[in-house]
Design a protein around this nucleic acid. Structure first.
Lengths: 347, 347
DNA sequence: TCAATACACTGAAACGTTACAGATTGTCAC
DNA sequence: GTGACAATCTGTAACGTTTCAGTGTATTGA
């Protein structure tokens, strides 16, 4: 009866996907032994181990994810949580590829968990945690006091944030040094004689808004330049809004002679606004902008750019989450990316 | 003993995730009954059904994916297969959001399966199929004779392609009418007096390369304009390569006075090349370009644009795959998106 | 009154995996 | 020869779900 069943199974498995049972039958061992042999358990004889692994490789055995997940709770999934309206385009694509690169030779899959404007950002996190859908989570649009980070920290869910928090809690993150970026931008503008600077900030409420504002302010006083307030818009606003506001600003007598912009798409709008006001980039005003792909110099060669590498961010974030899952200390999984020099067009 | 175990389970489940067993205990029914009641099986009494569903909703029951997957093989996963090097940036982000929109109120998750230059594009598909990792697959960069489509068709794996194939086989797809785009572009250029046109094509080998080339050629003879060959590059080439080639082309005596470009990023390079050669957009030459986000007019207002909506493509593709999984006829799940008018800057 | 039948529900088995608690050897000291 | 012990290996149960093959009870038709 028992043998009979095994036989039937084996015939069936002729072209079905091999399971531990298949391997057990082929090697003449028990299912348990095969399972342990494959994961290099100590109580398995060296020769048996090799034999099992050889056969497994030969027939292309791959553990059934559902079986593993059901039994152990391990999903082998990393979830990337994204805002479907506000996320920067190149960010999405680059960070996905960055993450992919790192998890490519691991058993992990990447699932994208989106949420929209209308939703509480905590919703997708709650869903992931309550349904146990992922072993690790990556979030962006990080806030100084981030409910999502707090929530996951309380529940011991491995996660990494793109951007830092400021809650006195330790967790993995990767961040671009936006303080340094803004400060460098100001210094560069001051260096070419610009004295009245405006800042197009990241979205208010996100941690890097503060970093950027501080870097901007500190460098302003360092170089003795002054700020022209430009607080009515942020890079989260629409191209049209930024463009209109910029044009308004540039038509005033006390207009800035320099801009610092935190995102490339917004910079296009700023430049359009500047030109709407009849002014010329490079002559009347200079703009330093972050960019994540090398397109701004094609747009206007007068633009001054600082590069931010989102693909790297994705890789680092993935590495952090995997590290945390692997038991590393959260404090050791924090990384910063320093901005390069402000670069002018090299014609 | 039995009761004892149930009790223990129930105490444990006080804050564990509820399962069918929890529901069974709470309702006093059998696990089977609960399972069937939740999926509106006919042999369950109307009142019982309502009662079970009420309790399930109250305690926030969600079926365990691993359990379902192990038992039924249904993964509730849609996989989006992407080339990590050659995919257009905004495409990645938009299509993901488009897919997300559609699967948001389904039990489906979206996993992103990347592959790189060095790999056979069939590899990730084989992986998905062999490991049964997804109920449905979406692929892009579709070829006239696409091994991936053939492979999945042979194995009955539900999939949809972004772009059509040309193998005489029926499968779901969504495509932008690139024939119409190229033809419209040519007509528009002819309409403003341009007679010598160059085409920056999609990557050779992809189906829409052919469509684009044909639309271009047919409209050329229709309007009596001529082609200036520009076959050494495609939109897959680097910005630098396109720029250099364009500049070379524009310095020749027989240079084109019009361009049709199949991608926005490439258009930036074309314009840069034109200007490198000392010529002026809108005066010496006009360019009609596809774009997927509204940025080209900020770049140069002289550009003529046709919009392609990748988010829509994502939604349509997701709908197709879900439809196919749901048993709809593949032939009914094919959709085309027509290009809008060529639009000039509306100042 | 009795069989037939429809109705509402149920337990057991199975999907593939791992953890637990043995079971079977052989080796060694005494 | 015996007991102890290490080294290997194994069966069973369990994770949560669905399917199969029932079970029991009321209802119907004659």
């Amino acid at each position: 009866m028992d043998r009979d069943q095994t036989d039937r199974d084996d015939e069936a498995s002729a072209h079905e996907r091999p399971t531990l049972k298949t391997l057990a039958f082929m090697t003449g061992l028990g299912v348990t032994t095969v399972s342990r042999a494959l994961k290099d358990a100590p109580e398995i004889g060296a020769e048996t181990r090799r034999r099992v692994q050889l056969v497994a490789r030969q027939i292309g055995y791959r553990p059934n994810r559902a079986g593993v997940r059901l039994r152990t709770g391990k999903t082998n999934v990393i979830s990337l949580v994204l805002n479907t309206e506000r996320e920067i385009m190149s960010f999405v694509s680059d960070i996905i590829y960055g993450v992919s690169e790192v998890i490519a030779d691991t058993p992990y899959h990447l699932i994208v968990t989106p949420y929209s404007r209308s939703q509480d950002p905590l919703d997708p996190i709650r869903y992931l945690v309550e349904t146990g859908s992922a072993d690790g989570v990556i979030i962006s649009r990080t806030q100084p006091n981030d409910p999502r980070a707090r929530y996951m920290l309380e529940r011991g869910i491995p996660f990494a944030t793109h951007g830092r928090t400021d809650m006195g809690l330790i967790h993995p993150y990767h961040d671009f040094d936006n303080y340094a970026f803004a400060a460098e931008a100001v210094r560069h503008l001051a260096g070419i004689g610009r004295r009245r600077l405006a800042l197009l900030t990241p979205p208010v409420g996100l941690t890097y808004h503060g970093h950027t504002v501080n870097g901007f302010a500190d460098a302003l006083s360092e170089v003795g330049a002054s700020e022209v307030p430009f607080n009515t818009v942020s890079i989260d606003h629409s191209i049209e809004q930024i463009r209109t506001r910029t044009a308004q600003l540039m038509r005033r007598d006390d207009r800035p002679d320099g801009f610092v912009s935190s995102a490339a798409a917004a910079t296009l709008a700023i430049v359009a606004g500047i030109e709407d006001a009849g002014l010329k980039l490079g002559r009347d005003v200079d703009v330093v902008s972050k960019q994540s792909s090398d397109l701004l110099h094609l747009f206007r060669r007068e633009l001054l750019v600082v590069n931010e590498n989102f693909r790297l961010a994705g890789s680092e974030l993935a590495r952090s989450v995997l590290g945390l899952i692997g038991g590393a200390a959260p404090g050791s999984l924090q990384s910063m990316s320093l901005p390069g020099e402000v670069v002018a067009y090299r014609g």
